[in-house]
Design a protein around this nucleic acid. Structure first.
Lengths: 309, 309
DNA sequence: CGACTTCTCTGACTAGAGTCAGAGATATGG
DNA sequence: CCATATCTCTGACTCTAGTCAGAGAAGTCG
């Protein structure tokens, strides 16, 4: 990235935090501490476990407890014990809580409207379009990609959604036990690895890499991106990450098989430089096979994020 | 504006305050209270009067005083009495202060880079472009337009710059005393009005309206936009505002005269719906005359900001 | 000169945000 | 069933941001 880009981002940060950030806090916390307001905001229609709230908002347990009690005292939330686990407590908005949330909502609308109001229709449309773009890309930069054990709950959730989607989209249905990789346990060191992409703690995408011993090829398996997270470039990012990891392990070729029903994925593979090749395995669910030569590297390169993350 | 637009702005606000705002504060205040950091940041290369700082940052005088003393104790700023006015104190960064500022600068770069890092080159370029657009338009929404006495210092500053620019751009030079409006004092109630557009207290643009009695036409005079503020749509906004004010006063026609050297202004007038007409006065500096029929209105309409601000 | 204003500083507060160290209740694994 | 881990809550703090009411020094105007 060049200096001019960094400079633009800096200017953006200043302008936006000054104009939006400050107002946002002020609107939100007009007659309620910002901490409480944020909490109300975060509480959805159904109840939430305190534990999850804490983790999601990154709050100290003591602090959160106090915030909850303040809201409870105002009659905005009710806190009950979790039906299954008595240690856990579940928070839920009361009627009054919903009303208060609606007030915050209205204020948020008001702030948004005040930003748009001084503009002419054409400028407004441009601003909204640019905001959409910024938000989309900023969301993309917030996603983290980490090596995760395939037995981790997040990993399991991704795989579950993946299988469900395949079941629905493949003409023949899908049963992982009948596939060439019945046990995802193979996707952990030293025979492989498994990546999970997360946004604010929510798992959005996954991808596995199989590093069979004694071959120069690494194989991509179980790659999936949550439907609502498509279009953020996550697929490409996972591919780039896998490529870098494979290179670290001295592999020279990256391979994968796929099903003809997965049109977007196939497009992604081609765009990322994969070439179609004859079948290199007898995966029953595969119709197409791809591979890509990669630059082996002992150390991970730094300059380009394709390899960097 | 429609609901979808408001919704987009809201989503933008949430994402951006969460991602940029919080980080911004955290980076900035990593080992220094945010208040102090903001102050360091705001202190330019030359010294600043405490009075101006207070006004610019909107701080309580006691609070600012304490912040300054904290920075002084750390040897980052020096505070001396103003040479001309012993009540006023002037703050200036010390060597160590500049070093500390450089650290903040570096962090800001770091934050910017961290936002860009996970993206591919193409995405980066798109993000930067969208940010530029958002920043530009958000700046535009922050500009306020108010009726101001033509003798107000801001108004005088604008007019001064305006005259200077005309002197330079007109083939014949420019002397306000030789023009048809030698005294801007006419541009105040009840015979007229004068608008000044300001951003963070800095005057950026102005425009006058002459409401000669006994005629159905109002006349626009002394319209100017600071060179560095062009492209924000301020000219259009001022025109719209004047049009609304003229309508409020029951006028049915808006008129203006202009010089052929002012190409951008002429373009603006045409784009805003003005038609060229034969000379309606004998302004020595005018080459072109324009007018526009406007809808008279006792009350100011609300729906469109063209008339709203 | 004297009254009034302007500007900065000090002292005395308040409130919010957040941290840390347990205590107590409830699960879980051997 | 016991030891250990997990989860929430309480009490006791700290820090920062910010407000308010003057005091005192320095200018300004009649």
């Amino acid at each position: 990235m060049d200096e001019a880009q960094v400079e633009t981002v800096r200017r953006f940060n200043r302008t936006v935090t000054a104009r939006v950030g400050v107002l946002h806090e002020r609107y939100l916390g007009r007659d309620r501490p910002v901490g409480q307001a944020r909490l109300l905001w975060e509480l959805g229609a159904q109840g939430r476990d305190v534990r999850r709230l804490r983790e999601q908002l990154g709050l100290d347990s003591g602090y959160l407890s106090r915030l909850l009690r303040a809201l409870e005292a105002d009659g905005l939330v009710s806190v009950r014990r979790h039906p299954a686990d008595g240690r856990v407590r579940t928070v839920r908005l009361t009627e009054a809580g919903f009303a208060e949330r609606a007030v915050l909502d209205a204020r948020s609308d008001e702030l948004a409207a005040s930003l748009l109001a001084p503009l002419r229709a054409a400028q407004r449309a441009r601003l909204v379009a640019a905001m959409t773009e910024v938000e989309r890309l900023l969301t993309a930069t917030t996603v983290t990609v980490d090596v995760t054990d395939p037995d981790d709950p997040d990993a399991r959730r991704c795989l579950g959604s993946y299988y469900a989607e395949l079941r629905e989209r493949f003409e023949t249905g899908f049963d992982p036990a009948r596939s060439l990789l019945p046990d995802v346990g193979d996707l952990r060191a030293p025979r492989g690895l498994f990546l999970v992409a997360r946004l604010h703690g929510e798992a959005l995408a996954c991808a596995g890499l199989k590093l069979s011993p004694g071959t120069a090829a690494a194989q991509i398996k179980r790659m999936w991106v949550a439907p609502h997270a498509r279009g953020l470039g996550l697929g490409r990012r996972l591919l780039a990450e896998l490529e870098a990891r494979a290179a670290e392990h001295g592999r020279e070729v990256l391979r994968l098989d796929t099903n003809k029903a997965l049109a977007e994925a196939i497009g992604l593979y081609r765009a990322a430089g994969f070439q179609q090749v004859p079948a290199f395995n007898d995966e029953p669910y595969a119709h197409l096979w791809f591979e890509k030569r990669i630059a082996a590297a002992a150390q991970r390169p730094e300059a380009e994020p394709e390899a960097d993350r």
